[in-house]
């Protein structure tokens, strides 16, 4: 299993698109940060709240997973590995790519604060909890996109669903911690995007349950579905 994870990471770091996407994200962060203010914790969490990292993650996961299936390289591996191992390795790749995005964003935030004259770290516990939850919410979202690729075996449907989930929720649903509409709140609690968007505003110990449940369910369901679909599919 460890070897397969190493293989997937080797592949990830050998792809030009990985670096291009990270550069695009950094550029976007630069343009968006000018409007943000507050402590390091506030600015960092607000950057993730915008959701652009999710778009980058969506594109990365689609390109990464499709490449393996479309090039047919998997045919050379299939006698040596179990298919579910590739699905698990993809989860790790999603996690590692998200961690890199986070690390770069934090460095950018730090530099932005130095230039803009903002100071203060903010609440360390809020930062740690927020970042961990964000990290796993993003990873779960990546695994969801990866599942769509296994299901539909093309780039179009996952990218449409991914973009709609990221942009659509932000554009069409007024997300706010004090959303009075109970039904809307319940609906948002079911989506990762809803969780990410409201995480900043409602960071209390009692509000951790929803994102944790969301991460657990999404990861569990998506990994199981991906394994089942991929296991049964004939490789062309």
């Amino acid at each position: 299993m460890l070897n397969i994870i190493k293989y997937e990471l080797y592949r990830m770091f050998n792809r030009l698109s990985t670096y291009v996407l990270l550069m695009v994200m950094c550029l976007y962060n630069l343009t968006g940060m000018g409007e943000l203010a507050g402590s390091f914790t506030d600015i960092t969490l607000q950057v993730f709240e915008i959701g652009f990292q999710m778009v980058i993650l969506t594109i990365f996961i689609i390109l990464f997973t499709c490449d393996e299936l479309n090039t047919g390289y998997i045919k050379a591996l299939i006698t040596k590995i179990k298919r579910y191992q590739l699905v698990i390795a993809n989860v790790v790749v999603s996690l590692v790519f998200t961690m890199i995005m986070f690390a770069l964003t934090m460095v950018q935030t730090f530099l932005y604060m130095q230039i803009s004259g903002y100071t203060g770290f903010g609440s360390a516990s809020r930062f740690a909890t927020g970042m961990i939850l964000m990290l796993f919410l993003h990873t779960a979202f990546g695994v969801f996109i990866s599942m769509l690729v296994y299901l539909f075996k093309n780039k179009i449907i996952p990218i449409i669903v991914g973009i709609i989930m990221v942009v659509g929720v932000l554009l069409f649903v007024p997300i706010s911690a004090d959303t009075s509409n109970g039904f809307l709140k319940m609906l948002l609690n079911c989506t990762i995007m809803g969780q990410i968007s409201s995480l900043c505003d409602s960071m209390t110990a009692s509000s951790y349950a929803a994102p944790i449940l969301n991460i657990t369910v999404t990861l569990g369901v998506c990994i199981i579905v991906s394994c089942l679909v991929f296991q049964k599919k004939d490789i062309k």
Binding site: I4, Y7, Y10, R15, L16, G72, Y73, I78, K80
Partner: peptide, 26 residues
């Protein structure tokens, strides 16, 4: 060891890197 239909290769990698990827995997 199998080569079924067209060889599945990563086109943006070199021959060495393609073989290395599988070596890492196994």
């Amino acid at each position: 060891g199998c080569l079924i239909e067209n060889p599945g290769l990563y086109l943006n990698m070199t021959a060495y890197e393609n073989v290395k990827a599988k070596c890492i995997c196994v």
